[in-house]
């Protein structure tokens, strides 16, 4: 009993050390820009850099569009599969897992071949088209997380009966999805949205190969050319991701109570 506890603690301490030591070291290093004292000089430089502001804004906007696209794509799909095509579930789950198996670089090379300026669908011929393609690519990368989050949310409500109750009251599909289904899976959708946000903010491969001024390539560029600033950026990026995760935790407390508790 005693020794079991000892080993459990040891494992925990080792794990925590493995996780925290690099983080603390990075933090410590990022604060040593001024010789002989700790300061937030590196952070000041980074946050004041116009390219940081531009690339970060670009990625935030891309993330928002990705989330909108993901919600529009995933909520009706997951809903319809639960309602009418449960036999397709395994297939759709497999498809949504593919982005985890296929590296982003394969996807983006596919894009470049498919949508080049001489192709029938020349997305890459204009800046706007390329941005659209970037958002589509991001939506693909975020698909596994978004789909799972929404599907879990749908499991907590009686999709079929609620749909029928709304239908018999005269509602059409837009009303049903907009006023009944979406509000009841909103928390799940939001957690999917924050995961998407975290993915998009740090994404490098797709943005870099499509040559977009995103935050990921900026991070990489800084890392290759500076000493203290990349450390500060790493800490900032980590804080953003961590903030997103905590928001998911907070929001899940507000999950709607189930209406179906026959007693």
């Amino acid at each position: 009993m005693k020794s079991g506890k000892f080993w459990a603690w040891l494992t925990f301490v080792l794990g925590a050390a493995y996780f925290f030591i690099p983080l603390i070291a990075t933090l410590e290093f990022s604060m040593r820009m001024k010789r002989g004292e700790y300061s937030f000089e590196a952070y000041r430089v980074v946050l004041g850099d116009a390219r940081f502001q531009e690339s970060f804004t670009f990625s935030v906007v891309a993330a928002i569009f990705t989330i909108i696209l993901g919600v529009l794509l995933v909520v009706p799909t997951a809903y319809w599969i639960r309602l009418r095509l449960p036999q397709l579930r395994p297939i759709v789950e497999f498809v949504t897992l593919l982005p985890l198996v296929i590296p982003a670089i394969v996807i983006v090379f596919g894009y470049i071949r498919m949508y080049g300026s001489s192709s029938p669908l020349p997305f890459l011929a204009s800046g706007l088209g390329t941005n659209a393609l970037l958002v589509i690519g991001y939506a693909t990368l975020a698909l596994p997380y978004m789909y799972r989050a929404v599907d879990t949310g749908l499991r907590t409500i009686d999709v079929r009966t609620l749909t029928e109750a709304a239908q018999i009251l005269g509602a059409g599909w837009t009303t049903i999805i907009g006023r009944v289904i979406l509000p009841n899976v909103l928390i799940a959708v939001l957690s999917g949205a924050f995961l998407t946000f975290a993915i998009v903010i740090g994404e490098f491969t797709v943005a870099s190969l499509l040559n977009r001024p995103a935050f990921g390539p900026y991070l990489q560029n800084m890392g290759a050319n500076r000493a203290y600033e990349p450390a500060a950026l790493a800490i900032i990026a980590f804080a953003i991701t961590w903030g997103c995760m905590s928001l998911i935790q907070v929001l899940s407390r507000f999950a709607p109570k189930s209406a179906n508790r026959p007693n």
């Binding site: 409500i157 009686d158 009966t161 609620l162 029928e164 109750a165 709304a166 239908q167 018999i168 009251l169 005269g170 509602a171 059409g172 006023r179 009944v180 509000p183 009841n184 709607p256 109570k257 189930s258 209406a259 179906n260 026959p262």
Partner: peptide, 17 residues
């Protein structure tokens, strides 16, 4: 949704939100 019929379900089916 075009029948103008009212229905009450065994599991109540009130909209939880």
């Amino acid at each position: 949704n075009q029948r103008n019929v009212g229905m009450v379900f065994q599991a109540y089916a009130l909209f939880p939100n």
